[in-house]
Design a protein around this nucleic acid. Sequence first.
DNA 1: TCGTTAAATTAGGTATACCTAATATTAATA
DNA 2: TATTAATATTAGGTATACCTAATTTAACGA
Lengths: 231, 231
Amino acid sequence: MPQVGARPALSRSVEDYLKAIYRLALQASPVATSDIAQALDLSAPSVSGMVKRLSEQGLLEHVPYKGVELTDRGRRAALGMLRRHRILETYLVEKLGFTWDSVHPEAERLEHAASESLIERMALTLGNPAFDPHGDPIPQADGSVAEVESMPLTEIPPNSTVEILRVVTSEPKRLRYLAEFGLTPGSILYLVDRQPFHGPVTVRVGRKDRVLGHEMAALVLCRPTDGDQIA
Amino acid sequence: MPQVGARPALSRSVEDYLKAIYRLALQASPVATSDIAQALDLSAPSVSGMVKRLSEQGLLEHVPYKGVELTDRGRRAALGMLRRHRILETYLVEKLGFTWDSVHPEAERLEHAASESLIERMALTLGNPAFDPHGDPIPQADGSVAEVESMPLTEIPPNSTVEILRVVTSEPKRLRYLAEFGLTPGSILYLVDRQPFHGPVTVRVGRKDRVLGHEMAALVLCRPTDGDQIA
DNA sequence: TCGTTAAATTAGGTATACCTAATATTAATA
DNA sequence: TATTAATATTAGGTATACCTAATTTAACGA
Ligand SMILES: [Mn+2]
Ligand SMILES: [Mn+2]
Ligand SMILES: [Mn+2]
Ligand SMILES: [Mn+2]
């Protein structure tokens, strides 16, 4: 008997800010307000205003003209949102037949409306998955996140066999393009060739050789497999 | 491959207003603004203000000091919301193990966030149900609503056998109380006795006799069965 | 050290959706 | 018909979350 208790206290906007700041902080910290503005497609003054409110609420610390860092409370909230988002994506793909390129915007809205107990019911039904359909790690209920070592396809030496672990874009067109080539988490591929100066990468998936531009190849994160399983 | 297209244009508040007005209009039309205020737990001036905006948007017609009626557009939107709400409730109960007393607030939030295609996926998975867990009819995608003839338990003559079709409350405590007595849609019961002057109603469910107050009995809508199946 | 520039903030304004207090309308009652 | 009471609306205000335009700050090179 799950109790449906409404969770919020945080508005949809606040939740999206915290999530964006968390992700930007993985790249560089403190996080510049202009980067937040770009990530959320908002004007810089809007972000300045929100940042002030969030720091007053103790969700982040702001050093004016320097940047922003999440407090523990802010980070916990952000991790909670990432968990919700990724459980939802996984559920939509696994249980409702959505494609991996279509679930992001749906999860982007549902993450603010679903109760804690709904998310945990879904997680249970899925067998508490550790990764979502894009290979993104799902933060656990206790706030822990799996750390996975991986390299972009652009850094893999030729003549190696790798497993795809993660694809780091949410753009439907790019996801569809990669899926057409069989480049989804879990697939095994053999790196045939890599050209210098941001040149293309040639990979063999199954029997087919595919040529990928540098920009797309950089989105595909891999792990070397033990032996060369494809010749 | 469902496309997840974000649906809105209408805000959460607007959607809840339209739904409330639709339901109130089933009782009496035009709908008084004070009744809307009571249904949504808002002040009367808030409703006056929103009513003005909704009529400017062509979602309803307002005759000041008289009341409000939905336009075709408003009614279509309201029926869409009821469909979303009731599909969600049904899915939560059938596929995720929620209890019938806990799903209402969850659906009340999700109905504004779920895309059309998510709702239709859920409906398909459920086999396009016609009624939700409370026996409320689910409007179909074309806007049609099943009309079911039914009588409250308070109007059933003694010594008859009836099937419960619908329970018209969303209060968890009342729903749990009724479920304890086995009074859920689909159950068959025998009406033992009915006292006058808003007096109690005695029903037999399975082997047990239960005494229900008039107020609770009025929430249980029934349909006479062919024969007297319980003696 | 003194501009110049890029980044960030402040100033001032809009839209939505609430609120309370004051006023207006309607409809029933005396 | 004139009160009166209930109902509804208008007036005026708050909070959130956006915006553009103007200003401030920090950092860097001349
Ligand atoms: Mn979101
Ligand atoms: Mn993802
Ligand atoms: Mn709602
Ligand atoms: Mn229902």
